[in-house]
Design a protein around this nucleic acid. Structure first.
Length: 282
DNA sequence: TTCCAGGTGGCAT
DNA sequence: ATGCCACATGGA
């Protein structure tokens, strides 16, 4: 079963799935992406058309799933054309205008909270290819088969219960390093106390940066402005901040990008990685 | 070999 | 409240 929708603008699957917000979508040889989210496996392909807007094809999806799952997940309700107009001249250097051109098809996905929590705990002091590998191995080890697509079995992430029942030795093959303890600890806390929605920093392994990522990617709080090494790099090179002046960067982001800080951050993150020759997260 | 990656917890001031 | 530093792992 396949669902198609036309006239989609400000949309590019490479930009969306390779801007560091998610770690589980696999690019196929034909340029499409296969992934599992909300317990469903789908394959997405996008055909560009600058005049009318492109057409998005989602395989293994019907109209109901599209409306209930993928339309919100892909943030198709939000007018990114208008949003980009607001951001384009927000800074005085023209940096944001260039970053927007470079990542014009980025959208902030509405991801599952639990998934963003464990994904970004794993992300600390780690690189994107390794993060993807860890999450993949973790899902195969303790997740459930979500189904099969194109001859390949896809696994869901482990539930909090499954992860809480694991121990360090069980997780050894996932090669999480010192983060394994954080994951188990966090899973136990979720199982015992229910999901803490405020003060995510109470979870082991969640500091200001990870919390900010969860706010942005898991709760769609577009004002959140996560500051990691790449953003520090942008702020330093393109806006003239000292590398360690995180407070200054945060204040600047708030003043300059306001409640769209998170979207601005994604344009900047994707842009600086491109400038440094990092593509396809490899 | 050393450095680095979507940083944080623990400890000393 | 702020400043260090160890921390697992694998690729450059």
């Amino acid at each position: 079963m396949e669902f198609k929708i036309a006239n989609i603008r400000d949309f590019n699957l490479d930009h969306i799935f390779d801007c560091g917000q998610c770690f589980r979508w696999e690019k196929q040889a034909d340029g499409s992406y296969t992934g599992v989210a909300m317990g469903k496996i789908v394959n997405m392909q996008f055909a560009e058309d600058p005049l009318s807007g492109g057409t998005l094809r989602i395989d293994n999806c019907d109209e109901v799933d599209f409306q209930r799952i993928w339309r919100p997940y892909l943030d198709l309700e939000l007018d990114y054309g208008k949003l980009k107009e607001t951001l384009r001249h927000s800074d005085k250097t023209g940096t944001m205008a260039q970053a927007i051109v470079y990542g014009e098809g980025i959208r902030i996905l509405k991801q599952d909270l639990w998934e963003t929590l464990i994904s970004f705990i794993i992300s600390q002091n780690n690189n994107i290819p390794r993060i993807k590998g860890c999450i993949e191995k973790l899902s195969k080890l303790l997740g459930e088969p979500a189904g099969e697509y194109d001859g390949k079995i896809y696994y869901s992430l482990p539930t909090p219960e499954a992860l809480a029942a694991a121990d360090i030795e069980t997780l050894e093959p996932v090669k999480l390093g010192y983060r394994a303890k954080y994951l188990i600890d966090t899973a136990k806390k979720v199982v015992e106390e229910g999901f803490i929605r405020e003060n995510l920093g109470e979870y082991m392994g969640v500091g200001p940066k990870v919390e900010s990522c969860i706010e942005l990617f898991g709760r769609h709080n577009l004002a959140a402005f996560p500051i990691d090494v790449w953003v520090k790099r942008v702020m330093s090179r393109l806006y003239g901040f000292e590398e360690k002046d995180v407070k200054g960067m945060a204040d600047f982001a708030k003043e300059t990008f306001g409640d769209l800080g998170g979207v601005a951050q994604q344009y900047l993150f994707y842009y600086i990685r491109g400038l440094d020759g990092i593509t396809k997260s490899s």
